[in-house]
Amino acid sequence: MMKVKDGDLDKLGLLFERYNRPLYSFFYKKTFQTDVSEDLVQSVFERMLKYRSTYSGSGAFTTWMFSIARNAHIDHYRQNKKHNEKEELDEDRMGGASPEFGEMDERTKRKKILEQALDQLDEDKKEVVILSRYEGLKYAEIAEIQGVTESAVKVRFFRAMKDLKNIVHTLSEEYSDE
């Protein structure tokens, strides 16, 4: 990134090749929408170019990158709110024309429940789970991204897992009643 900052813009291509999948995965698990996730990845790289002069190189690049990603998602969420486009859970976002729940195999059923449960977590908790469980970030790095203490992130993670357990339990019961 320091080379990009110094004007070697081709190096951004290397960063894209290295990080487009983790970023896409981050946005997908936040939104469960493929087209929105792709737009947000593009937005992150546009912001990296725009704000390249602010990159200090003092911390980990991934922390800087996910901070930009977090802001891009917040802006997207605000914009959607402004246009009254509700970000509610719907069947289309969870796989569109997928078969009925009863026709799925056990693994697919469990996956669907976990996706829905993850989607129901509040945004900060969901983010901690995504960054730690899927993107492999340490709590100290997540604390920097979220602008809170490391201790607060750990508590947030624990409570996210607790909420997730309860939501999974409720959803499993709802589906078994169908």
Binding site: G13, S37, V41, R110, K111
Partner: peptide
């Protein structure tokens, strides 16, 4: 088991 699908090739095209 919560996986992420592959992004489309358009994402890469748009970036470049």
């Amino acid at each position: 088991i919560v996986s992420t699908p592959e992004p489309s090739s358009e994402m890469s095209d748009r970036f470049y």
